[in-house]
Design a protein around this nucleic acid. Structure first.
Lengths: 226, 226
DNA sequence: GTTATCAGTTCACAATTTGTTAATACATAA
DNA sequence: TTATGTATTAACAAATTGTGAACTGATAAC
């Protein structure tokens, strides 16, 4: 089958299973990357940016749940599909897995047929809408669905990064965001940009909004305040 | 029963079964066309453009799955309902059948009652499009039932994809649709087309409408705005 | 059966916008 | 005053989109 253009990362410490899954998913037209433990999974995930990550729960270095938590904490992997592989069919780990932010889970022993149909179903399901809520603070309104910011009902056009930065700060008015936090949330952990970059964006936001709503906390970070 | 105006093609190599099905579906008010092997099925499908095609899996010349694949590969049959008839009740062929693009399947031996209810269900599923309402925004009107777009009462002819894209955007004025969302909604998850394809269609819509109603949100997507 | 036509797609490259950096000026606290 | 950290600006780099043309495959017309 020709490529579907979808990349899948599989992490499992059992070479046999890894191979079986890889073979079947490749045959289905997916591009497959493999990892043999948790650390490698995190690394390759950042490196290859897969559309779907299949994680064995039991793995050396870091287990599947840990890997999932690490990845989910980064903006770049907020939308990535994650599927757990587990020998434990008990309700407990199932629930915990899905709570961590997994999209589905499959219990071992694995039937390639079932796995494939689950994987296909996951991709089919991506028709989901990211329903984020509109923020309204005083005369400022931030609507992520419309990607629209208004001040006193007047439209203000922000660029993507500016918008994301403002939305982050405004989502927790009063809370100080460290520069590092901002970098992680808006830029993602793996991207390396200079410190001044944040300043520049902050400045543009202040400029465009014409509001004094972002407070500098020297030596710490920024916070939103109206 | 009077005609429902729905045409059904039945392909099966067993004359008895063919006759039984034909009799029962005719009695239900469907127009029935028959074929006794895969090749004839493909030919008659192209000839008569049925609304539903019932395919026996096991047939001479070409089996049902092959016929399905051939037809589904052609745009004219992307929307046509296809139902498999099979003596094999095993999971395998079921899964393969549905993945090939069939809409349902019925196992032999066939109960006319069950077959009819399945057929009716399929048409019911296709027919219910009550949410496809006419959109009217300012001097623009979009009628999905008639597949018609008018600007200031003047007809504008859009191609299918162009129409679908416009309808999607216009159905939620102001909301930004990410490029991925657009691909999923208009093209479907399994189809992989290049990024520029969306731009080209957007451009054609803008061109044909002569309205500045689609806003580009750089790095994010597009939204409808009037 | 050929040819013409059209929707849909891709490509190459232009046009534009956005993101980043680096250099410099400014502000503040010790 | 000095050390530290932030603001500002302009120049540059990178990313994204717009556009015309060409290509493909299916259908319609001849």
């Amino acid at each position: 089958m020709e490529s579907k253009g979808k990349k899948i990362l599989i992490a499992d410490d059992e070479p046999d299973i890894l191979e079986i899954i890889q073979y079947n998913l490749s045959k289905e037209g997916y591009d497959v990357v493999t990892a043999k433990d948790g650390d490698e999974a995190v690394g390759k995930a950042k490196m290859t940016r897969p559309d779907l990550i299949i994680l064995d729960i039991m793995m050396p270095k870091k287990n599947g749940v840990e890997v999932c938590e690490i990845l989910r904490s980064q903006p770049a992997f907020k939308e990535t599909l994650i599927l757990f592989l587990t020998a434990l069919s008990d309700e407990g780990s199932h629930v915990r897995g899905l709570e961590t932010g997994a999209d589905d889970y499959v219990t071992k022993p694995i039937s390639p047929k079932i796995l494939i149909s689950r994987v296909n179903a996951l991709f089919r399901r991506i028709n989901k809408e990211p329903e984020e809520k509109v923020l309204k603070i005083e005369n400022l309104s931030i609507d992520p669905a419309k990607f629209e910011v208004t001040v006193d009902g007047k439209d203000v056009t922000l660029a993507k990064k500016e918008f994301e930065l403002l939305y982050l700060l405004a989502s927790r008015p009063g809370r100080v965001f460290l520069r590092n936090e901002i970098l992680n949330q808006v830029w993602g952990n793996e991207v390396i940009v200079g410190d001044r970059t944040i300043d520049v964006h902050i400045r543009k936001i202040r400029q465009k909004l014409g509001l004094d709503c972002i407070t500098t906390v020297k030596g710490v970070g920024y916070k939103f305040n109206l």
